[in-house]
Computed example of a mutant assay.
Amino acid sequence: MSTTVSPGAVTAVPEIGAAAPAARRLPAEDGRRPRWQRVLFVAALVGAAVIFMLPFVWLISASLRPREYVFAPGFLPTPFAPDNYAEAWRAVPLVTWLLNSVVVGSAAAAAVTISSAWVAFGFAYFRFPGRNLLFGLVLATMMLPFAVTMIPTYLIWSKLGLTDTQVPLWAGNLFGSAFYIFLLRQFLLSLPREYFEAARVDGASYPQLFWKLAFPLIRPALLVAFVFEFKASWTDLLKPLIYLRNEQLYTLPRGLKVVLDRFGYGGEQQWEVVLAGSVIATVPMIILFFLAQRHFVEGIATSGRKG
């Protein structure tokens, strides 16, 4: 320990790197809620989780029943008919649609994540006149509904000869998204500016600042943007309905529309096939969320701390 002498007092100052003395914890500083509050909180969470899970549990149960028992009351799949999934695989090209959704979703998520990160880095790092006004205009584009730009966008892709291809489903994301630009900018603003200034002094260029410094530091926020957009692309039905005509290019939502038309209303009333296809389309998103859950929650929490 080193000491600093001042008139009439001697104050102990810990050395750099030395462990600070343990602070005395008062009973009021424990921060633990009373047991009844914790029990009530956990019970509320469990109740909410059960309510949100009931539709999916029913979906799985109904997809495992014979046709005449699909809409029977209860949550147990009795009688048990797992052959519904084999019938769904045989009836339509689910494998092709599944792979198409993975390709389109990955391309759309990667395109919007990288492009939005570039724009967000510019708004977070550079200081220039009108920056806040320009950023406000970018955010204002979120107020435009898709229906406003749907026809002009279709005419552009039609002139380029790219209708009935999967390109319009993801290539528009190369121009970024206002929501993800805002999300990533908030994360970038939480980083100390001194990191970037020190790198500039060492001779780093602006692309190097982004790829070698900012990109690794904002990885949780990038993962949030990627998962959000992948989910949005995975569940998007409108764009495939507008642009795709070839059944071999269909994504899962567009394919499920075919399944519903063929086996549901106005079709053969084979609802067990429709429900089995719905489960197959839902499970990959659940798996993706559980794999990315830790980084996903961290990215959302950190992005909300600044601004």
Rank of each mutant, 00 (worst) to 15 (best):
T4L: 10
S6K: 05
T11V: 12
A12H: 02
A12M: 01
A20P: 01
A22G: 14
A23Y: 04
A28G: 05
E29W: 02
E29K: 01
Q37S: 06
L40E: 05
F41S: 13
V42S: 10
V42E: 11
A43K: 03
V46E: 03
G47A: 12
M53K: 00
M53P: 00
A62E: 02
V70S: 05
F71Y: 11
L76V: 13
L76K: 04
P77R: 01
T78S: 13
P82S: 08
N84T: 11
N84F: 08
Y85D: 11
W89F: 14
A91F: 10
V95L: 13
L98G: 13
V103W: 09
V104H: 04
G105E: 07
A107G: 03
V112E: 08
T113H: 05
I114F: 15
S115T: 08
S115A: 15
V119C: 07
Y125T: 15
F128D: 09
P129R: 13
R131H: 07
L133G: 10
G136T: 09
V138I: 05
L139H: 02
M142H: 01
L144K: 03
F146V: 12
A147S: 15
A147G: 09
M150T: 01
P152K: 00
T153H: 01
S158G: 10
S158W: 07
S158P: 04
S158T: 09
K159H: 13
L160P: 06
G161P: 04
G161D: 02
L162A: 05
T165A: 02
W170F: 12
A171S: 15
G172N: 02
L184Q: 10
P192A: 05
E194Q: 08
Y195I: 12
A198L: 04
G203L: 04
S205W: 06
F210Y: 08
K212W: 14
R219E: 00
R219P: 01
P220M: 07
F226A: 14
W234L: 10
W234G: 13
L238V: 14
I242P: 05
I242K: 02
I242V: 13
Y243R: 04
L244E: 15
Q248R: 14
V258S: 11
L260K: 03
Y265H: 12
E268M: 07
E272P: 00
V273L: 14
A276P: 09
V279N: 09
V279A: 09
I280D: 00
A281K: 13
L288D: 08
F289P: 06
F290K: 03
A292T: 15
T302L: 11
R305G: 11
G307E: 15
